[in-house]
């Protein structure tokens, strides 16, 4: 009798601990969650503008100097924005779900800011080139791709 009661109590305690743990897991700091949403939205804006330029480079969208220029200008503005608050500590793939950001971003010796500079420069070049014709657009777009990939190579978990 005593044993059964003890067992039941132990079971109840275990269940409570488990429930607590899962509650803790599902509980993400809203500030972190908002920052992750913001940086992913920023990436979406990059890809939306790149989509037009890449479509022209591939020949799927007819080249138009004005629309190409404005998409490239958007990219340059986006690249130049201060993103400091998008990337709080504790928002890596080891801390939360729904991100592929590696902890290396925040560790000493991180070269993320160098990659940002590379992107800012490449986007500025693209802004100048996009309205000058398809070949200049293609060349400058490849450099932007290299800048994106340069950072994703080391700082985003690869599953592609």
């Amino acid at each position: 009798m005593l044993n059964t009661r003890l067992l039941a109590a132990a079971g109840g305690l275990a269940a409570a601990i488990a429930a607590n743990a899962s509650l803790a897991e599902s509980h993400i700091d809203p500030a972190i969650e908002a920052a992750v949403k913001a940086r992913q939205a920023h990436m979406t804006l990059y890809s939306f503008n790149l989509g037009l330029l890449g479509g022209m480079a591939k020949g799927e969208i007819e080249y138009d100097a004005d629309t190409a220029s404005s998409a490239a200008s958007n990219l340059a503005r986006l690249a130049g924005m201060n993103q400091g608050r998008y990337w709080p500590e504790g928002s890596s793939i080891d801390d939360i779900e729904n991100t592929r950001a590696l902890t290396a971003i925040w560790t000493e010796g991180s070269e993320v800011m160098t990659h940002v500079d590379t992107l800012v420069k490449a986007a500025a070049t693209l802004e100048g080139a996009a309205g000058e014709g398809l070949d200049p657009l293609r060349g400058a777009l490849a450099e932007v791709g290299r800048a994106c990939g340069g950072c994703h190579e080391d700082y985003r978990q690869s599953d592609d």
Binding site: G145, H152, E153, R156, Q157, D160
Partner: peptide, 9 residues
């Protein structure tokens, strides 16, 4: 208009 990562870079 995502980009390659990892070894593919």
């Amino acid at each position: 208009y995502d980009t390659a990562g990892g070894e593919m870079v």
